[in-house]
Design a protein around this nucleic acid. Sequence first.
DNA 1: TTTGCTATTGATAATAGTTATCTTCACAAT
DNA 2: ATTGTGAAGATAACTATTATCAATAGCAAA
Lengths: 143, 143
Amino acid sequence: MFDLIRVLKEKGYKVTPQRIAVYDLLKGTKEHPSADMLYNKLQPLYPTMSLATVYKSLEVFKELGLVQELNVGEDKFRYDANARQHPHITCSCCGKVEDVDDEMFFDLLEQVSQKTGYELVNQKLYFFGYCPQCQKNKVSGVS
Amino acid sequence: MFDLIRVLKEKGYKVTPQRIAVYDLLKGTKEHPSADMLYNKLQPLYPTMSLATVYKSLEVFKELGLVQELNVGEDKFRYDANARQHPHITCSCCGKVEDVDDEMFFDLLEQVSQKTGYELVNQKLYFFGYCPQCQKNKVSGVS
DNA sequence: TTTGCTATTGATAATAGTTATCTTCACAAT
DNA sequence: ATTGTGAAGATAACTATTATCAATAGCAAA
């Protein structure tokens, strides 16, 4: 199991309640929240926490390779406590962001590398469409 | 052949020298420029053109489906006069943005759609790595 | 446990890309 | 030619993010 506290200590970062709170919240959700979404959710429990602290915590986690930053075409970033690169899909109707199973992408990187001559180090794959839920609502909702 | 002037007229937009200039510049380059890169390149020929006009022109082109907006993880957008969705690759060393041939992606969308249940309408695929040029420089440059 | 060093927090100012506002201008239709 | 309207240019406003800085708190050493 992954232990934030150990990693922070190992790398010479201090263990603070704020960092633990931000990380735990991100770790425990699948909704790929943005910084201000995290901030708002933390407000009730940590009413003194600053938005800047949320940003700075995320910055540290990025450096440590504990989270990844997503850009799904909004004017802000979203964050994922699963730092392993994997594709995401966004519902153009409700704005939800979900993970996509990435088994099917294994060959892809090799192919891209061969075609382009690049030495690949990373990729960001975003898909957009209408989620099953919104497809239903669309059919039943509008006559 | 594609005719900007006709499309603008058809959709009720005015044909202006500024719009033509922005579009022609974007159409004629492969470097996927940002708004300010376009602005700077236009300065010598159109010294009175405003940055706001560049943005507004791009906005119109997006609406008309003539260009697409890219986000390769910078704090600004880049633009591509090829509005057909296709993957891009960015060199993490020199910052260059290039097109990737998308033949290999045809099955992918079907697979993603099946796995997720989404009705897909779009996708943004970004790859990151070191371009052939920077790989060479790296080897020969640093001893 | 106490002390002292220093990273971190919280509050807020600054930054930068983009968008909105508003006045003036250009062009098309009458 | 005149008039109406969309567009341009200049600049203010907006917003997510980053930088600044004094006060605080984690942590190592005594």
